[in-house]
Design a protein around this nucleic acid. Structure first.
Length: 540
DNA sequence: CATCCTTTGAAGTAG
DNA sequence: CTACTTCAAAGGATG
């Protein structure tokens, strides 16, 4: 039952130990950033205080948290998808933790504060105050790197203290607020200020509060509070459709081998056709056709970066697709929606909520209906098997490609070229990515922000603010994404894309650092993941 | 025009 | 096994 026992599957599903998420060390990225335009590290100690919260992480690595997983796997003894195996089942948190949370909860005060606190998160701009308004936050613990690094506009005392040990690895340290504060909506980060010069940071108080709230684990809050909770930075009521759209992605995947007439979806053939972005891609058509009667804010389009046809991300994902029971039933087994216990077809979880009647969009002209499979530009309309996985994108990254232009590429014979043109199968999105993808539009709409970096920061915070149940949904989706991806591209490995993206910059760095190309991996460019020792990090 | 920024998580590499 | 790196999305900013 362990499918293609490819090395990949092996590693892919093995319960990763402790991702040790950036274990206290200096994040490479951080390093890069620091070395880059980021002027954030004021007095960053040579030690390389990670600009990014260097998670002192005294706490157990995140992985130890009990994954808010579906019990389903339950030891996976059950066949079904053993895939469901515990890969993610890692701990999100253990009971002790939970207890802690609870106690903290009560200790911290009425949950009501959460929303409030959160809403003020982004609000305060600089601050100094030493913060950590969080009482037992043990905030002090963290001041270190993070603070040093992040504080740019001024010594920001260490408000970002990582959550105290009691909550191992759970809520991550607060992040610096994007740039500025939105003029009209203080809760939203405002227009970007000149990056290096005026980074505004969240006030220590706010940070402290955020931490506090994070520690409270909103998931334990009564529903009545959820709304508030869920709209920490920006407007409110954002999280209504979460699982939802994500679910859609899954359900539009071509049926895996077992599920239908089309055993092994073969992606490659038409992969040049306009492709929806990675996972959600299959959503995009839906978005385009079902949502966005108000195309205005929704920036659907062709990704300029990768040429991927991105889903039209309307702020409101709801109402874009009405899921019939039939279609539900079509869910391939392996990709089936999580078991009832966690994802009940109840209003609370939201099937109805997430798949509202088409009329949901007020005043919106009812979009024309086309089955997703017809809209994917696979070249074989309506033929599911021809629908390439969204993860496949043209090598160039540019979209341009017409469905059949492939045959026109007569010149592409050259070996190198061919190779270069080989379609890139992208990594499956992880839980957070899925979450981001889903929520970005909302954040953009609510905060009138466009900068992804800022948005991502917000999303990052929100992610942490999510209840574990909610996160679990995304973890589960991500897991299924990986499963599906694995099934679709059995031989694929993340390694395939290794070095493709950063190579250039790395080379740059190396060049600048060493005065010449440091080709330690000359013959293996793709695997040339720059070893730590070659990164500028050390140069810091 | 390519890269950076920014986030988290997964998976890869190196020691 | 640990530590670290890269990539995944995204879109404005930057060089």
């Amino acid at each position: 039952m362990f499918g293609p026992a490819s090395s990949r599957s092996r590693s892919a599903w093995r319960p990763r130990p402790a991702p040790a998420a950036r274990p206290g060390g200096v994040s490479p990225r951080s390093a890069r950033r620091a070395s880059g335009s980021e002027v954030r590290t004021p007095g960053s100690p040579p030690a390389g205080p990670a600009p990014r919260p260097a998670l002192p992480r005294a706490a157990p690595p995140r992985a130890e948290r009990t994954m808010p997983q579906l019990d389903s796997g339950g030891g996976g003894a059950g066949g079904g998808d053993d895939l469901g195996a515990p890969d993610e089942l890692l701990a999100f948190q253990d009971e002790g933790e939970e207890q802690d949370d609870k106690s903290r909860d009560s200790a911290a005060g009425p949950e009501r504060d959460l929303a409030e606190l959160k809403s003020s998160l982004v609000n305060e701009s600089e601050g100094a105050a030493g913060g950590a308004g969080v009482p037992g936050a043990g905030a002090g613990a963290r001041g270190e790197a993070e603070v040093g690094a992040e504080v740019s506009a001024g010594p920001r005392p260490a408000p970002l203290a990582r959550p105290p040990p009691p909550v191992p690895g759970w809520p991550r340290p607060a992040l610096p607020v994007p740039w500025g504060t939105h003029p009209s909506d203080p809760s939203c980060p405002g227009p970007r200020a000149p990056r290096p010069s005026h980074p505004l940071w969240i006030s220590p108080q706010a940070l402290g509060r955020e931490h506090a709230s994070q520690r409270l684990f909103p998931d334990k809050l009564p529903e009545s509070l959820e709304d508030g909770l869920k709209a920490p930075e920006c407007a409110s009521g954002m999280y209504k459709d979460t699982v939802y759209s994500a679910f859609n992605l899954l359900m539009h995947y071509p049926p895996p081998s077992g599920a239908g007439q089309h055993p092994q979806p073969q992606p490659p053939l038409h992969n040049k056709a306009s492709q929806p972005a990675h996972s959600v891609p299959q959503l995009s058509p839906l978005y385009e056709h079902f949502s966005s009667p108000h195309p205005t804010p929704a920036p659907a389009d062709i990704s300029q970066k990768q040429g991927v046809h991105r889903p039209l991300q309307t702020p409101d994902l709801s109402g874009f697709y009405s899921l019939t029971s039939g279609s539900m039933g079509q869910l391939p087994h392996t990709v089936s929606w999580p078991s009832p216990p966690l994802y009940p077809l109840s209003p609370s979880c939201g099937y109805r909520q997430h798949f509202p009647a088409p009329t949901a969009a007020p005043g919106a002209p009812y979009p024309r209906f086309t089955h997703p499979s017809l809209m994917l530009g696979s070249g074989v309309p309506g033929h599911p098997a021809a629908i390439p996985h969204p993860a496949i994108v043209p090598p160039s990254g540019k979209q341009e490609l017409q469905p059949y232009d492939r045959s026109l590429k007569t010149q592409a014979e050259s070996k190198a070229e061919k190779e270069a043109k080989k379609p890139t199968i992208k990594k499956p999105l992880n839980a957070f990515m899925l979450y981001m993808k889903e929520m970005r539009a909302k954040v953009i709409a609510e905060c009138t922000l466009k900068e992804s970096a800022a948005i991502n920061q917000i999303l990052g915070r929100r992610w942490h603010a999510l209840s574990r149940e909610e996160q679990a949904k995304y973890y589960e989706l991500a897991r299924k994404e990986r499963q599906l991806h694995m099934q679709l591209y059995p031989g694929w490995s993340a390694r395939d894309n290794y070095g493709k993206k950063k190579r250039r910059s790395r080379e740059k760095h190396q060049e600048s650092n060493t005065g010449g190309k440091r080709n330690a991996f000359g013959t293996y460019p793709e695997k040339a993941a720059a070893p730590a020792q070659f990164l500028p990090m050390t140069v810091l």
